[in-house]
Design a binder for these strands. Structure first.
Length: 215
DNA sequence: TGCCAGGCCGGGT
DNA sequence: ACCCGGCATGGC
């Protein structure tokens, strides 16, 4: 059965690799900034940008809102796509301040699906970024699906190649315990093995060492 | 040294 | 509804 194999995959990964200690950040707001900056970008580059923002005291909604767009661009340049991402950061803090007074504790009160729709309505935040924020910044029981998840699941015949985001997400959420700690660990573990062992981009590749289970 | 990274948007079919 | 080009830096 498919769900048993997903649970096995999680157990193998957590027992062999251990906790990944995600999401590295000093505050929930920093998680949100990182989630936007890491879109299609190496985390190492994001760290440089976040350190720049930290040194400039720009890790709060109001300080980013008040920062000039050109300064913001210069700080986040190392994480790439800095022209669009500086706009994305601006869009987010503007909405956050308008709707929730830039107050994280106000966000904590909101029900997950309402919060998800609000995040998705902001330009620059798609499904993966929204779910990363819900899970790692707001501690919700949401599974984050990314390219590694799709590749690894596909190679294990856990999904077919046209499976969409929601389908993969539901599959995991209905299989693993409803626990943000576990769902967050699973996503981090999939990224970890994806980075180390799963270099081939062809999702149908069956020779990659990540292929753990026989079919 | 080329390839790619913890995606998303917008325009074209 | 899909598909694809554009966005960009730093690491290995």
């Amino acid at each position: 059965m498919r769900s048993n194999r997903i649970f096995n995959l999680y157990r193998i990964l957590i027992s062999s690799l251990g906790s990944q200690h995600w999401w590295p950040a000093d505050s929930p707001f920093e998680v949100i900034i990182g989630a936007i900056l890491t879109q299609n970008t190496n985390w190492k580059n994001v760290e440089i940008s976040i350190n720049n923002l930290k040194k400039a005291n720009l890790l709060s909604p109001n300080s980013i809102f008040n920062c000039s767009i050109n300064d913001l661009k210069s700080y986040i340049k190392p994480s790439g796509f800095y022209r669009v991402k500086s706009d994305y950061l601006k869009y987010f803090v503007k909405e956050f301040i308008e709707h929730y007074d830039g107050d994280m504790s106000r966000l904590m009160e909101i029900e997950s699906s309402k919060l998800r729709n609000w995040l998705l309505s902001i330009k620059g935040i798609g499904e993966e970024t929204a779910d990363s924020i819900l899970l790692y910044a707001l501690d919700r029981s949401i599974f984050v699906v990314d390219a590694y998840t799709k590749r690894i699941f596909l190679r294990h015949n856990l999904i077919n190649k046209d499976a969409d985001y929601k389908e993969i997400q539901s599959l995991v959420e209905e299989t693993l315990p409803n626990d943000p700690k576990i769902l967050g660990e699973f996503h981090a573990l999939l990224v970890k093995v994806g980075k180390n062992f799963c270099k081939k981009k062809n999702p149908l590749c069956r020779e990659c060492p990540i292929f753990i289970f026989p079919t």
